[in-house]
Design a protein around this nucleic acid. Structure first.
Length: 466
RNA sequence: GGUGCCAUCGCCAAGUGGUAAGGCCGCAGCCUGCAAAGCUGCUAUCCCCAGUUCAAAUCUGGGUGGCACCUCCA
């Protein structure tokens, strides 16, 4: 297994801290709004990573946090005149539902910030004791970046002198302009937590460090986790700060490997509130099958920036359709569990820093070969068994082709429309039997008007949504 | 302004020193009552310039053009 380490900027052979085991931590969502395609991309990338690691025989412990303490959440709650928990529960549930729709499995552990306060306070206390953090008169606690010689090495950043001066003017309580808050005091009566440093709430960066320690880290290891992942924008300042906290507050570094996924852009531009072009997953799921979205978002390399557009999405659907059509050809047949050469090749491709493009090329080739054989005369007993086994493997490792193939092709068609289509197909079959092609062609036009395609096969006539 | 990434067929996209995967679209054919689906065949020398090398899309230098991060962000 090779992993591109975005800190060392090179592909590295993956060697776990503990034989046969992998600990993976990924920064999850802040639950104050609906998940957009970027959240989906990140979740999909690390879902795939988990599957590939598992297929390689590793026992993976995957933690993805839920940030349920945050200024934006508080603001949203105040605006809606609702309880904080009501907001966070609502969006957490929505997140889970949408992730399930795109085939993202639940992580092994899903820690919440509100449930990890003890660990956070413990870490801050250690950092203060170690002289890596300091409280201010206002009741805040800051991390002292000048106390950490490794600071900024993760993101390969250099201090900007002009920027430094500007920030000194704006924030006098900080020792250094780059210092960041570990604990923010809260004076009003919005959500606050008790701590030895006074009432307040934890800083965002601290959360992840504390949760990693609590749920994944082992004191004797050189690193807290094997792999730490997240979106490319998190490298600085979030991951830089996390790494500093862990490095200075514990006796190990945060992660051995760092992985960052690229962005999802819409029509060449980054999704953002200010541009008003955020594409929410819930809206996409109304129009497209979740698995099509999964296939599309995973179809290019995870580190590349992804330019979302409906034309390309349609191409992805066509490619996924091919998997399902083959599945349909073999529907209902028993599976053989023997591992095939195809499966080895597929796993090898995915084990090379998740080369999905190569994996998809292998899949297309496998599909063509299988279809070609099935088109030719003969029973093809062995081939059928192997093909079914291959499809099952694709399902397991990539999460493509998990649905019933007939239902897949009927996405978004109402039940009564389905009944009408079936009725028309029956009438057309009768006309065809009677060799009344004029009538059967007319019936076909009627069927096509529902936005579906029909295809005649030896097993009968089937229809698919276009 | 600082830091970094990217540029491969009409479109999407692998390949990072050894002579251009795959998909979509298109064209031709097989199959089909006709279609659809499926199958077969055909379709690029890798943004520009210079250099290193027996050999470069792949390395180096210089352009040009995109993009990201530096503030909350997946």
């Amino acid at each position: 297994m090779l992993i591109f380490d975005s800190v060392q900027k090179t592909k590295r052979k993956f060697i776990p801290l503990e034989e046969g085991k992998v600990s993976l931590y990924v920064c999850g969502p802040t639950v104050y709004d609906d998940a957009h395609l970027g959240h989906a991309k990140s979740a999909l990338v690390f879902d795939l990573l988990t599957r590939v690691l598992t297929a390689n025989g590793y026992d993976v412990t995957y933690a993805r946090n839920i940030t349920d303490i945050d200024d934006k959440i508080i603001k949203k709650a105040q605006e809606a005149n609702k309880d904080i928990k009501e907001i966070t529960d609502f969006y957490t549930e929505a997140f889970h539902k949408e992730m399930q729709a795109i085939g993202v499995s639940l992580p092994t552990i899903e820690p919440k910030a509100t449930e990890s306060l003890e660990a956070m306070i413990e870490l801050i206390t250690k950092l203060i004791d170690n002289k890596h953090a300091y409280p201010t008169d206002e009741g805040d606690v800051y991390f002292d970046t000048s106390s950490d010689s490794e600071y900024l090495k993760l993101s390969h950043r250099v201090q900007d002198e002009d920027d430094k001066l500007q920030r000194v003017e704006s924030s006098s309580a900080k020792k250094n302009p780059a210092d960041f808050a570990l604990w923010k005091s809260v004076k009003d009566d919005t959500i606050t937590f008790e701590s030895p440093f006074g009432k307040g709430r934890p800083g965002w960066h601290l959360e992840c460090s504390a949760m990693v320690e609590k749920h994944l880290a082992k004191p004797e290891n050189k690193f807290a986790v094997d792999i730490h992942g997240g979106g490319a924008d998190l490298l600085f300042p979030h991951h830089e700060n996390e790494a500093a906290q862990t490095r200075c507050g514990t006796n190990h570094a945060l992660a051995n490997y760092w992985m960052h996924n690229g962005f999802v852009n819409i029509d060449g531009e980054k999704m953002s509130k200010s541009l008003g072009n955020s594409f929410f997953l819930k809206d996409a799921l109304k129009e497209y099958d979740g698995e099509v979205l999964r296939f599309y978002l995973l179809s290019t390399h995870y580190r590349s920036n992804f330019n979302f557009n409906t034309e390309d999405l349609a191409l992805s659907k066509k490619r996924l359709d091919k998997i399902y059509r083959l599945k349909k050809r073999l529907f209902g047949l028993a599976q053989n569990s023997d591992k095939t050469a195809f499966q080895d090749e597929l796993l090898t491709a995915l084990s090379d820093d998740m080369n999905v493009s190569l994996a998809l090329a292998l899949i297309d080739e496998m599909i063509s070969t299988a279809n070609e054989a099935l088109d030719s005369a003969g029973k093809h007993k062995q081939l059928k068994k192997e093909t079914i086994s291959n499809l099952a493997y694709i399902e397991k490792v990539l999460g493509f082709g998990v649905k019933n193939p007939y239902e897949y092709f009927q996405f978004g068609i109402e039940e009564d429309t389905k009944a009408k289509i079936d009725m028309l197909i029956e009438k057309r079959d009768e006309a065809k039997k009677a060799k009344d092609f004029e009538a059967s062609d007319k019936l076909r036009d009627e069927i096509l008007a529902f936005g579906v395609n029909i295809m005649d096969t030896p097993q009968g006539t089937f229809w698919e949504k276009v």
